[in-house]
Design a protein around this nucleic acid. Sequence first.
DNA 1: CAATTTTTTAGAATTTCTCTAATTTCTTGA
DNA 2: TCAAGAAATTAGAGAAATTCTAAAAAATTG
Lengths: 139, 139
Amino acid sequence: MPQRRQFAAALECLRGAGLRPTRQRLALARLLFDQMARHVSAEQLHAEAVAARVPVSLATVYNTLHQFTSAGLLREVVVEAGRSYFDTNTSQHHHFYHEESGSLQDIAASELSVSALPAAPGGTTVARVDVIVRLRNRR
Amino acid sequence: MPQRRQFAAALECLRGAGLRPTRQRLALARLLFDQMARHVSAEQLHAEAVAARVPVSLATVYNTLHQFTSAGLLREVVVEAGRSYFDTNTSQHHHFYHEESGSLQDIAASELSVSALPAAPGGTTVARVDVIVRLRNRR
DNA sequence: CAATTTTTTAGAATTTCTCTAATTTCTTGA
DNA sequence: TCAAGAAATTAGAGAAATTCTAAAAAATTG
């Protein structure tokens, strides 16, 4: 079961990031990593946690999502003003964004590539390249 | 003076979009288009308008920015949760985003290209492709 | 297990943006 | 030019997303 392994890896990573494996963080990690790769908002994850009878506040969900993101376990994808998702797939890839439904869909790195990236301006380095392909329903 | 021409074009476009050329819209169009291409937030533009003694409310600034965007005069660029800019350059191009300073910088379409875009999922068409190259200060 | 440190929490605060209902401005046509 | 109608603007309330705060709870350490 690769998801279990991913969860175990998350624990490892938590420890590596100096984060204590608390009840809330473990439960959120389980919700995030014990299934297929997904794109989840803070509100969504909070709702899931509540539904799973994990006592956790929205503030902690935000804290945890940001900590996981800093630790490299998640990647934040901002699609429009006031709407961002956390992606459990942290490998290099891009996204389709369905503007009407607000949903995200992965584009594998092998399916799309950015060619000839210009040099980063002086004193800076490239932290990441995000490509969002925005979709509308046809006709 | 190409900016003047751009402003005149904006007026044309306003009329084309069925928007009346009101005092506020004209003033905002002047602030937006009577200078080099720029990236501006709603708050910034509102502050500029107030400084220029143009009586305009923040609500109108938002309305106007969105109307201009719909009319194809502006392009909205969302860089992070709760932070978006309106770009007066609507030609196809991409962006560097300086995460520390929060500033945007254009990347000409000729300097970066997306190769081999996968087909849009069934029933959808590609509305736009956004590339954001995120920068951090080096060391 | 006591002391220390970290985490969590509720709720307030902040930020960004949108809505509402009343007022003002613009346009049209007599 | 004015009256009538349509559209735009406004202040302020309201929403939504996110962050902050200070106190309580939990985890770790010795």
